[in-house]
């Protein structure tokens, strides 16, 4: 009985993780603008990793392997958002046609028409 519960919980977690990764992959492939694609990729990097590793933790039971997997979640959640943040920042600082895709909140009302591109 206990093993069946463990198995079902593992399967649910893994399937949910695969679903999150599928969403991430479809988003990265279908979106056009970089920041949107980063948003999609971030879903896979955080939620997908979390769910899949959680499934592995449940499957591993209470052991040292489970602790290593929890550490894996910790490091992934620690580093992946940072790298996403910096990729987004590079995009923000280097894209010349940023106004085409992004509406800056608070600037539209002021009418501060930037003289970047016509």
């Amino acid at each position: 009985m206990m093993e069946w519960i463990q198995f079902i919980a593992t399967a649910v977690c893994l399937l949910a993780g695969v679903f999150a990764f599928a969403v991430a992959v479809i988003g990265v492939a279908r979106f056009e603008f970089v920041l949107n694609r980063l948003h999609a990729a971030g879903v896979g990097d955080t939620l997908g990793i979390f769910l899949i590793v959680l499934g592995c933790v449940i499957a591993a039971g209470f052991s040292l392997d489970a602790l290593k997997l929890v550490l894996l979640i910790f490091f992934m959640w620690f580093t992946s958002p940072v790298s996403t943040h910096y990729v987004a920042q590079v995009e923000y600082f280097t894209n010349r046609q940023l106004e085409k895709y992004v509406r800056f909140i608070g600037e539209a009302e002021n009418g501060s028409d930037t003289d970047g591109d016509s």
């Binding site: 490091f75 620690f78 580093t79 940072v82 943040h85 910096y86």
Partner: peptide, 20 residues
């Protein structure tokens, strides 16, 4: 070039990560 070495996020993350 945008220098990221002065930013708090990068510094704090690196302070935890580099020893590990």
């Amino acid at each position: 070039f945008h220098d990221i070495s002065r930013e708090a996020i990068m510094r704090n993350v690196a302070a935890v990560l580099v020893p590990c």
